[in-house]
Simulated assay, not measured.
Amino acid sequence: MPKRQAVIAGAGIGGLTAAIALHRRGWRVTVCERAPEPPVTGAGIGLAPNALRALAAIGVDAARATGSAVPETMGVRRSAGQWLTRAGTADMAARYGVAPVAVPRPAFTAALAAALPPGTVRYGTAVTAVDDARGRPIVRTEAGPDLPADLVVAADGIHSPLRRAYFPAHPGLNYIGETAWRTIVDAPDLGIAAMSETWGRGQRFGVTPLSDGRHYLYATAVVPAGTRPTDARAELRARFGAWHDPIPALLDRVARLAPADVLQNDLYDLAAPLPRLHHGRIAWLGDAAHAMAPNLGQGGCQAIEDAVVLAHLLPTGDGANGADSVPAALAAYTAARRDRTDAVRVRARRVGRLGAIGHPLAAAARDLAVRATPTRLALRGMDDLFNGFRLPG
């Protein structure tokens, strides 16, 4: 019997994880990526315990692929440097079975792509449409030729053309009111052992040690959508240069980067949940399905969960279970994933509103409340996220 064929639109973390999971269940997989080549610059991504367990379920060892260094502590600080809350990663590992790890996104996507057969990922191949009128989808691409498929996975990102095509009545994206800058710097001499996010008034600055010894930096500010400074490096210095150490020293490293190495993106999430995460033989995952604010560090983690659960529910690729089992499996995927991912989306939006508070009195009350919360209760509040990954059945 010929193998079932899957076409995946998008070679981000969710799309590549889905490709690996389906390949290991015997599917023939093609990944179509709009970009002309793999990313070589970019930012970092945090892999929380739930994502690491999902990857382990399909035989992917993220630490082996990208390095296993983890920070000693994680927490939230004020702009003057005082810790509002802090937890040791050893405590997190004891509670959740594994410590979170942060990795360079380009290195991680390269490791995922390398786990696939040569030729699986086709760069410079944008999916323009999916014709499913005859039951078996035909994927149209700019590069051609058309690709018949038993399954199409829409992992085509936050601005997903396939989401807009199949859910035209959906309200789309919601600007959450903040822009974000991201970059990676080398700073081994600074001896930074903590993963931290610092809260000011309407601004935040994050420092994350990466598995390869570099540091992922991100910053946010409440500004109108489309605001773009002439020089992002100078903008970061103006906004955060007087904050606590080691932020000024890290900004010295940022000043030495090429302008293109500092990324800026306005932050959006999905304005409302999709009515379902599938249509016929098409399944949506990651940002295409449930774009969320980055405040919980769960966007990529939920995409990984999506991909692993989707492949688990689908029949094997040898065709032995009959053609009709694919649509039923996608309905089960919606049932398994829609409520969890929407709950995370809503929670991430609420946490972002706390971090973006600009009024001095409201910010002081927020900081006092966070500081008064015992660490054990703060960790317990993450249980549903970090222990929430389950394979159905």
Rank of each mutant, 00 (worst) to 15 (best):
112 L>F: 00
81 G>T: 07
55 L>M: 14
68 S>F: 00
110 A>D: 09
88 G>T: 11
100 P>G: 05
92 M>N: 05
101 V>C: 01
95 R>P: 09
63 A>M: 05
105 R>Y: 08
46 G>E: 13
58 I>P: 13
71 P>H: 05
48 A>F: 06
92 M>I: 15
50 N>V: 05
63 A>Y: 01
105 R>S: 03
117 P>E: 15
120 T>V: 12
77 R>Y: 08
99 A>Q: 08
108 F>P: 07
56 A>T: 12
77 R>C: 14
81 G>Y: 01
82 Q>V: 09
46 G>T: 10
84 L>Y: 02
114 A>D: 13
66 T>M: 12
95 R>S: 11
54 A>P: 10
65 A>V: 08
80 A>Q: 14
72 E>H: 11
67 G>I: 06
107 A>D: 15
61 D>G: 12
93 A>S: 09
101 V>W: 00
60 V>P: 10
71 P>L: 10
83 W>C: 05
96 Y>F: 14
74 M>S: 12
119 G>R: 01
53 R>A: 13
98 V>G: 05
62 A>R: 04
119 G>H: 03
102 A>K: 02
98 V>H: 04
68 S>G: 13
63 A>C: 13
60 V>Q: 07
103 V>H: 00
69 A>L: 11
118 P>N: 05
74 M>N: 07
69 A>D: 15
107 A>E: 15
118 P>K: 07
111 A>R: 04
53 R>S: 14
107 A>V: 09
51 A>F: 04
94 A>M: 03
118 P>V: 10
49 P>Q: 14
116 L>E: 02
117 P>A: 14
61 D>F: 03
118 P>C: 06
113 A>E: 15
105 R>N: 08
79 S>W: 01
